[in-house]
Simulated assay, not measured.
Amino acid sequence: MSSKEEVIQQWRRFGWENRFKMAFGKPVKLLEKEVECLKNSRERTSIWKLMITDGTTEIPLVLKIYKKPLKENHVVELNMYQIANTFLQEFMPKVYWIEPNVKSGEIWMFIEYCKPLRGQIKLDPSHYDNIIPTVAKFHAATFEKRISQHSDIFDSWLPDYTSMSMDSERRKHIEKTKEYLDLAMKDSNLRGLVEPCYKNLHRIFRKGPIFFPELMESGQSLIHGDLHIHNISCRNANENEEWDIQLVDWESAKYAPGWFDLVVLVEILIDFRKDWQKNADAIRNHCAQLYSDEMKKYGITFKTDPVQLMKMAYLQRTLEKRLLNHLRRVLRGEKSVLLERYLEKTMVWGKELGLY
């Protein structure tokens, strides 16, 4: 991936200080010693934090570099920032500009640095009261027929959860999951975990790839798709006022049931946080009802109980891909915190919701 020296070299070569002078209305310069790599992702993207100054104030920026050939999720993210940003600017960082051909066709995108929520606070369940209203407002803006008002923005590139291509993908993943369950049954370390669920999982898979029509009937919107706490930024988390939240890392954006975002935001964190698990029902019930109440403010109501919709979205997400990913991981000799939770909750909630 790009090095710190290369970032500085390209900055000088393209004269980007002049571009930022136009953006901020005053001369600025890059503080070269403070160029910092935040993330490298499998040689395809890298994320950098840059600091520029006008001599008085230091202004942080984010630079994201995409290498070609672009993957589909990178195209989605670039379109979110390049095409959808004006419509969704309340929920996203500001885009300064996108440089399309820096080196070997690389795309360099400069956006506003938004302070990550993680690190500002020690997250506890009460903080969902500050986050979920923004998530609901974001979903409501494109809920069902409302997205058709913005077809010029989204139609040509936004992945659709109900499309034939995504349906085909789900079916392939489910068949692959069955294969990995068979492999797990032959593995001495995994057999004890998988065997009690094996027959019921096969009964459940026969009902797929959409396991809950009610989830689809609850309505769809543009969703973030990877709404964990690392992808939430906030300008004022330590202040006693409504949080000003921006969402980052839009590679998984799609048109899908909004409950998938709630699952990642709330339920997956419960799976990781053992200290939350004794109060899991209370946390889940509160968050599902809060989201439902917030959506109602925008004229959106759900016929199915919100907690059931949360559980359905969790199981749908688990069965269509996540269980496969974590079986594969453990069979490779890696650790998985979530595999046991996925199996346990699929059995409990699957029975409760009539999957077997």
Rank of each mutant, 00 (worst) to 15 (best):
R171M: 12
H139A: 05
I174S: 03
H127D: 11
Y81V: 05
M109T: 14
I107N: 02
E175I: 10
W157C: 02
T86P: 07
H150L: 11
D152C: 00
Y180P: 02
L158S: 03
E179R: 11
L117W: 05
S188Y: 11
N79Y: 01
I174T: 04
R191P: 03
F138S: 01
T86H: 14
S148F: 10
M109Q: 11
M80Y: 09
N85S: 08
K94M: 05
L190R: 01
Q120F: 08
K137H: 14
N130D: 12
W108M: 05
M185K: 07
E144H: 07
C114M: 09
E175W: 06
S165L: 13
W108A: 03
D167P: 00
F91E: 01
K145N: 14
R118Q: 14
I107D: 04
I107H: 10
E112D: 00
K172C: 10
T162D: 11
L193C: 04
N85A: 13
V102I: 15
M185G: 07
F91D: 00
T162M: 10
P116F: 10
S168H: 09
S148N: 14
S151R: 10
F138Y: 02
E195M: 09
I98T: 11
P125L: 05
V135P: 03
N85V: 05
I132G: 04
A141T: 08
P159W: 00
A184V: 00
L158M: 15
S148A: 10
S126W: 04
M166I: 12
P159V: 09
I132V: 10
R170L: 03
N85W: 12
I111A: 10
T142W: 03
K122P: 01
T86G: 09
H127E: 06
R146E: 11
I98G: 06
Y113P: 02
F91G: 01
K178E: 14
Q82D: 08
E144Q: 15
D160E: 13
K178Y: 08
K178T: 09
W157Y: 05
S188H: 13
E90L: 09
D167G: 08
V135H: 05
T86D: 14
A141K: 15
S163H: 00
K94V: 12
N79C: 06
I98E: 04
I121H: 08
